[in-house]
Amino acid sequence: MSALFTRAGLRAAIATLATTLRAWAPDGAPPKSALALVLIASANLVGMAVLWRTVKQTLGPMARTPEPPPVPQRRGNERFGMTETVRRDVFRELADAEINERRRAITMNTWGGHAWSREDDLGYVQRARAREVAARYRLTLTQMYLVLDEGIRERWPGPDGEPLRATSEPISLRSE
């Protein structure tokens, strides 16, 4: 390694760099016959046109897919495109799933009490319930999480009369 820093080493490095710069050769020297040249040029032009067309046909429609409409801003009693009654109903359903999962974790002593893993299980249950409720109310998943956030912030009571926890277990991965 130290040889690299000697004068000879540096000279060799500079020579290598110079060779690299000088030795650029295009990918295959240009052909010398006119026919070959015309053939190659035309094949490439046709190729480019075909590629452009293929890209347009296959990827074009994907690029043009419209964005879903945004969640509506607050309008009177309506928030996130829902009345407060609907929001509270949605929250109650999400809270119900959470309370049941927390109870199950304690009863079954899941993960030997490893707190983050239990939280991870809760995330799984919550995700499933959120999707199910969203489908039932014809809402988006994004709206579900907005309502969950509102309920936690406003300390809306869950089915057990208590607000949901506003904290999460810090990440603590199992070592196995």
Partner: peptide, 18 residues
Amino acid sequence: PPVRFEQQFRQHRGNRRD
């Protein structure tokens, strides 16, 4: 896909799966 909603940044309790 997610849907946009404009508001000031703040933390959600969140869910890594969504």
